[in-house]
Design a protein around this nucleic acid. Sequence first.
DNA 1: GTCCAGGAGTAAG
DNA 2: CTTACTCATGGA
Length: 275
Amino acid sequence: MEIAIQARQFDLQKSATCAQAFRWKPYQEGFFGVAQEKAVYVRQENDQLILTMQGNDVNFWEHYFALDADYSELEQILVQDEKTAESLVHSRGIHIFRQDPFEALISFILSANNNFSRICSLVERLSNAYGEKHCFFDIEYHAFPSREALSVATESDLQALGVGYRAAYLVKTMEKLSQGYDLQALKELPYEEAIKELETFSGVGNKVANCIALFSLDFSQAFPVDVWVKRILEYLYPELSSKEAVDKIHETYGEWAGIMQQYLFHYARAVQLGK
DNA sequence: GTCCAGGAGTAAG
DNA sequence: CTTACTCATGGA
């Protein structure tokens, strides 16, 4: 089926390519995307999204794209600073996608010390090897692997896919999950405790924990600091240490820190800040 | 050949 | 709490 839905203040192009999710590919006039076992061809025409789906997953995608989000309150804060105001030009329209926690956990373990295009190809290889095969009209795709399917993978199996030293992290993480670990339950914890708990997984440090929290557990205040954000923090707050800068972000942006991080990240990459 | 990428683990100061 | 080193992989 094909359906058009309202999507005001949403930029599909930016949101699909800003490295928050790894399964969106340019396709025809828009993107072909996979989340969990679902697939969609989506394109944007002004304030409308046109979704093409096998079944009726409109509600799922509306929720996934966070079309209910309103970031105007954030914009009021960030325009007060000349430097952060500039990021709005590059980043306005980005939405934080609501991803599945298991998918985010595995994907962002793979993201460590890696680049966006290679992360995408690794996630696809992992899905092709361990995810259930589905059809989207004439397109064949693989769902993201289930826990059960991925837990049979050995370290050497995973290394053969090209994940490198992250293979051991994945195996240990799958072992920790194997006794019925409830990732969704982390949503109920206070932010700091959820981060601390996520960091107990192998291959999950502070940055990856914040990505999982922000992109899959509804922690809108999560603020992942990678090489790009580190550069932009030094640009914004040259007098502060990196820890002080993050504290400053939390003080200034509160529950908006997460989307602010996406704005800054996208901006820093767009202008190749610090390079 | 070197450098870099949405860093983490580990040891050491 | 910080720095320093190592860890695969592949594209630039």
